[in-house]
Design a protein around this nucleic acid. Structure first.
Lengths: 203, 203
DNA sequence: GTGAAAAATTTACACTGGAAACATGAGTGC
DNA sequence: GCACTCATGTTTCCAGTGTAAATTTTTCAC
């Protein structure tokens, strides 16, 4: 006869919801240790479980990182929509989404890098692709509202989508790596929204 | 009495130019194995040297990766200037540089990721910062030729520089991670130069 | 109850980067 | 010529990583 079923003190053999606990611990450790020093063993220790336990739920480290990245994309989508006011015009809404994109990257640098790491995650995983597509769809919808003519139905990805995504993602990435000039308070000299407010004309 | 000084067959105890040999081997292995699976031991083995030998020249793995990234930036600068014809106008030259930027990223994906990895390299290293600055200077100079008024002397980084660099870098990064839609031949549906040729007007 | 399957553990293995002690050889001063 | 110095490599060892296999524990269906 072991300890009683679940009074405080005795940890049960089965965790209960190890899957979500591992993802949350991974998200926390990701920002504490950084992407490079994140380890499967440390995540498992944080949850209080042996280092091989995650295999039952995620298969391998890559599977766990994929699940973490998927949760990252869900939060990313929320950050994109955070400042989106329906009353605003398309350009104001675009600026708000861009600021959300950058803010998310700056507040979760390691997670952001993981999400776009390419080989650390399994981009064939349905959960991850669904979350990433949902996040991308927000930006794509905003791009569509800025297009001149009718929707470019023949393309899987319009020119406006490619332009906006590249610009915002590049800005977020460079800011994250510390490559953009910053003022004394640590924020970028050129804000992302300013780039839209003072849009140049080449042609 | 050991073997004669340097006839073929007997490898001398001292390599001679191990430093550059390690960088070259690292560059080759980087694209073969990918950034994630690159190992100091394998680079050393490739050169035919013990895995602790690099420490004398680079201190640690980070030091070696920093040297590799510096060489990457030198090649990156060359790729930027490759298609730059003095006779062309500023916009044509910008398009050519952008295409060089993207082509370099696509042809050296692992090296490109290393160069902008942030924590794998030591961005306080004088060699690396000099090479990176030189590469950035090419883009900055092109941006300056596109500015409307006189040079924005008060800023360390002008709005045009930030805009162009973010756009081109984001495009290259996303293309590299396979996030941009591609046609049947593997090239992007929306070429980087097309983004400039069909530049939108927001305001 | 009993048996099957899920969930977690223990153990072992190949691999990594780094530290320390030692070996080798090139170069310099005499 | 010769010893001394020091940069350059090697050997050995260590802590840490992710994964695989065999084993134990628990839950759940019948």
């Amino acid at each position: 006869m072991s300890a009683s079923p679940s009074p405080s003190g005795a940890r049960p053999y089965h965790h209960g919801n190890l899957k979500t606990a591992l993802v949350e611990a991974g998200l926390a450790l990701l920002e504490e240790r950084g992407l490079g020093d994140l380890s499967l063993r440390e995540i498992a220790a944080r949850v209080g479980v042996s280092h091989t336990a995650p295999k039952n739920h995620f298969g391998s480290l890559k599977g766990l990182l994929t699940a973490i990245a998927a949760e990252g994309f869900r939060r990313h989508a929320a950050a994109l929509e955070a400042g989106l006011k329906p009353a605003d015009g398309p350009i104001e809404r675009l600026q708000a989404a861009a600021e959300g994109y950058v803010r998310f990257a700056r507040e979760n640098p390691a997670l952001f890098r993981l999400m776009f790491s390419g080989d650390l995650c399994d981009f064939n995983d349905p959960d991850l692709t669904a979350a990433a597509s949902a996040s991308y769809g927000i930006l794509a919808r905003l791009a569509g509202q800025l297009e001149a003519g009718p929707a470019d139905a023949g393309h899987r990805q319009t020119r406006m989508e490619t332009l906006l995504w590249s610009l915002v993602h590049g800005y977020a990435t460079l800011a994250n790596e510390g490559q953009l000039a910053t003022g004394p308070d640590g924020t970028q000299i050129q804000g992302i929204a300013d780039l839209f407010r003072h849009w140049p004309r080449f042609v």
